[in-house]
Amino acid sequence: MNSSNEEKVAHPPLPDTIANHLLDLLANDDAFRAVFAADPHAALIAAGLTDKQADAALLGPSCLRVSSLASKEAIADARDRLKHSLTSEGAHTVVFCFDDKA
């Protein structure tokens, strides 16, 4: 088996209520979207995570870090898939989840 340095780092799944709130904000709230793009840690706390949970959510190559945030429409259209990804066990390293460069 590979050492832990070679394994993908996973963050804990987000609670359903937080994932729903985060997706609502990303699909509708321009001010929140600006914060998310500039400081995802602060945005995740604003969406309801604790400081420790936000740190864990951003660990490693998290899909919650973006270079350019996808449009509100794209997030709304992909909501079910995004929610499944955010609330499921897994590596959460699909770097294009919220990125419009995908």
Score class of each variant (00 low, 15 high):
A46D: 13
T17D: 13
E6Y: 06
A10Q: 07
N5V: 03
L49K: 02
P61W: 00
A70V: 05
G48L: 10
A43T: 14
T50R: 00
Q53M: 08
D29K: 02
K8V: 10
R65Y: 09
S62T: 15
L69R: 09
A38Q: 12
C97M: 13
K83D: 07
N20D: 15
L26Q: 01
L14W: 04
T87G: 03
L69V: 09
D80A: 15
G90K: 12
A43W: 09
H21R: 13
A47T: 10
S4M: 15
A102G: 13
D29T: 03
A38L: 05
H92W: 09
N20F: 00
V95P: 01
A54D: 05
S62I: 13
P13L: 13
H11A: 12
I18E: 05
V66Y: 00
A91Y: 09
A37L: 11
A19T: 09
R81N: 10
I18V: 15
N5W: 01
L59R: 08
D99F: 00
D77R: 06
C97Y: 12
Q53F: 03
T87M: 04
L22A: 07
M1S: 15
V94G: 13
S85M: 11
S62E: 13
D100W: 01
D39P: 06
R65P: 04
T93K: 10
F98T: 04
H84K: 14
D100P: 01
L69P: 09
S68L: 07
V9S: 10
A76S: 15
A76T: 00
A43V: 15
G90H: 06
A37K: 14
T87Q: 04
N28G: 13
L25F: 04
A43S: 09
H92G: 10
D80M: 11
R79Q: 05
V35W: 07
R81I: 14
V9R: 06
D51Q: 12
S85G: 12
H41A: 12
F98P: 01
F98V: 01
R65K: 13
G90E: 08
L58Y: 00
L22V: 11
K83M: 14
K83T: 08
V35T: 15
T87C: 06
V95F: 00
E6I: 10
E89R: 06
A76Q: 11
E73C: 02
A37D: 11
F98A: 02
A56D: 14
L86K: 03
V66L: 04
N2C: 08
V66F: 04
F36A: 05
A34D: 12
A46Q: 14
H41R: 10
L26T: 02
L23W: 03
I45K: 13
K52V: 14
D24Q: 05
A78E: 12
V66A: 02
A74Y: 00
H84T: 14
D39K: 08
S88L: 03
N2D: 15
G48F: 07
L49Y: 08
A34R: 12
F36D: 02
S88V: 03
D51W: 05
L59F: 00
A43H: 06
A76P: 01
E89P: 02
N5Q: 09
N20G: 06
S85D: 09
K52P: 00
V95M: 07
A76E: 06
